[in-house]
Each structure stands twice: as C-alpha cells, then as structure tokens.
C-alpha cells in the first residue's frame, strides 16, 4: 500500500497580476516505509506542495484538479477542515526548519509531550514514561530530568531532536520533514539525519523529506523527486537520480554542487538564466529557456517519459543519457 499517492495535482494562486500556476501536474508516490526526498531550489513549489498535502493552502490558493490519496482511502483534497485536523498530528505529522515552530516556549517539554497524547487513554504516568522513552530514542541525555525543562534550555540541535520526538510520538503513518537540518551545523546535521533514519526504521513510517541540500538527500532518501518551477521534472530511486539523471535540470543541478567537484577548481559550474514567471508559463518545457539540450520539440509540452523501473523524467530526450549524446 502506498502511504501517499499524489496524482495530477494542479494548484493555482490568484494574485493581483493574474493567476499563478504554482503546481502543474504533480504526480508521485510515497510508498510505505520509505523515505522520499524532494529536491528543488527556491520557487520550485516545495512549500505549496506541503501545504496542499496538509490542507493548509493560503486563502488565495486552490486545488484545481488532481488527488492526494492517503493510505489508499482518504483523498486529502476532498476532506473538510475538521477531518484534516484529525489526520494532522496522529496520522500525518510535521517537522520544520525552525524547531521553535513546534515547541511552545512557555510550557515545559514534558508537559508538551504529555499534551500531544491527549487522544490516548493511558494514565498520566504512562504518558510521561512514553515521553521519556521518546526523548531517549532521540538521544537527549538525562531524559527524565529533561521533561521539566523548557525549550530555551536546550541547544538548537537538541530542540530539533525534541521536535522530531514529538512528531513521531503518535507513530504517524507519514512524517513530513521540511528542511529540518538546514539551520543546523554540519556535525549536527549528520547526527540528525542518522537519527531520523534510525527512527523511521523503528517506527516504520513513511517520510517525505524536503531539502535543497543534495548531500543530505543522497544520504538519507530511498526515492527522490526533483522539482522545478512547480513541476516534477524527474523522479526515481536515489541511485537512478544521482547516478543516471535523465532530466537536463537534474544533471545540471548535480553538477553545480561544489561537493561534487572533488578536484579544486576556480570556476564552478552554474545554471545560467532565471526561473520563468509562473504567471505566464511557457506552453512547452518549463526548463527550455535554460536547457543546453533544447531543440525544436521542446516548444510542445514534454511527456512524462518512463525510462524503466519507475524512473520518470518530463523530457523529450530522457531516453538518451547525456553521456551517450556527448560521445556520439
């Protein structure tokens, strides 16, 4: 069973300068017990996608078409606000870049962790014990004493781990992690992603992990979805995407990461050009104006090209890897 199946999702915002097509035909699955990473740069529609899944689109945004099927049953685009509230928390939980978004600064950590178990029938002692267990799981030293402390008494890395503990407390089916390690230092970042991976395996949930950090995605995720200007331009397993990218944008993006250049160079690769104005989407390929493999056909909308084993790229030349083209 797939935890989350997004199919043909289109989201539009009405703005003063006309409608803005923020997500266009977005389709991908988050299979059970897998970590799916979403990679994309600013303006790619990551935040809109998360808000659409959580039913928290801004007032001027609307889902025009498509479905978001959760656990094969509920279409999240059709649920009412009350039903969405029931799902958010126990079934779908979230971790954000700033852990203070999840932690109330004036309530002790223990009280907050007991409060989120309000649906559970167990006694208060048992709830407190569960909170201790969770804190130990995320490696907070002296977990029992930590219950009485307030969020500001923890370091940034610990706060994020507590936020993760709280998000996973009710053993949700889906964890949405939006840039949870971006604000952390490198040494804390790697411990946090290792922790996230461990916990995911223990709890057996699916994770939708959003990051612009390619290294983190490569290390943590099973599957990867590459977004550009509100479209899924490529999706596949982490090896398919990183070892054999088929969309020119993915290929260029990977090249740009200075970590990919093991040889010291004074001239780093870039992707010239800007993301197009989403109020005036081109009819054809959204990446055409920056693509080095652009040709006449790109003026028409490109198909979602399946190059095998669930590896899909929205590109006319997806079946010709760049290395082959270069040598030909």
């Amino acid at each position: 069973m797939t935890t989350l199946a997004i199919d043909g999702l289109n989201v539009t915002f009405s703005t003063e300068d006309g409608p803005l097509h923020a997500l266009k035909n977005v389709s991908f699955d988050v299979p059970e017990n897998r970590i799916v990473g979403i990679v994309g740069e600013s303006g790619c529609g990551k935040s809109t996608l998360i808000n659409a899944i959580l039913g928290l689109l801004a007032d001027n945004g609307s889902i025009d078409s498509g479905s978001i099927l959760f656990q094969g049953r509920d279409d999240l685009t059709k649920l009412g606000p009350a039903q969405m509230r029931d799902l958010r928390g126990p079934k779908i939980s979230t971790v954000f870049q700033d852990p203070m978004g999840a932690l109330n600064p004036v309530i002790s950590v223990g009280q907050q962790m007991i409060n989120i178990q309000y649906r559970s029938d167990i006694s208060k002692q048992e709830k407190a014990q569960r909170a201790v267990d969770m804190l130990e799981l995320v490696r907070i030293p002296d977990a029992r004493a930590a219950l009485a402390r307030y969020p500001h008494q923890f370091s940034g890395g610990m706060k994020q781990r507590i936020a993760i503990a709280m998000a996973l407390m009710m053993e949700p089916a889906l964890l949405i992690a939006d840039e949870p390690t971006t604000a952390l230092d490198a040494t804390l970042e790697v411990t946090t992603i290792e922790l996230l991976k461990d916990l995911q395996q223990q709890i057996g949930c699916s994770v939708l992990f959003i990051s612009h950090h390619l290294g983190v995605i490569a290390e943590l995720c099973d599957d990867v979805v590459v977004m550009y200007a509100g479209e899924v331009v490529e999706r596949g397993t982490v090896r398919q995407i990183f070892n054999d990218p088929r969309h020119p944008y993915t290929a260029r993006l990977l090249e740009c990461d200075p970590a990919r250049q093991s040889e010291r160079t004074r001239s780093l690769p870039t992707i010239p050009g800007e993301i197009p104005d989403l109020r005036a989407r081109p009819r054809g390929c959204i990446f055409a104006n920056r693509c080095h493999r652009v040709h006449d056909a790109c003026a028409a909308p490109p198909p979602d090209h399946d190059v095998g084993d669930g590896h899909v790229a929205r590109c006319f030349v997806a079946n010709v890897p760049e290395t082959v083209e270069a040598t030909a």
Partner: peptide
C-alpha cells in the same frame, strides 16, 4: 561530516 551527493559513498565518519 559533510554529506556528499553520492548515494553509494560509504561514510567513514568521525562522529563527535
């Protein structure tokens, strides 16, 4: 500690 964009890389990490 620097995560590298290579899923096949084995991480021989010094954890602090």
């Amino acid at each position: 500690a620097n995560p590298e964009p290579d899923p096949d890389k084995t991480h021989d990490r010094i954890t602090l």
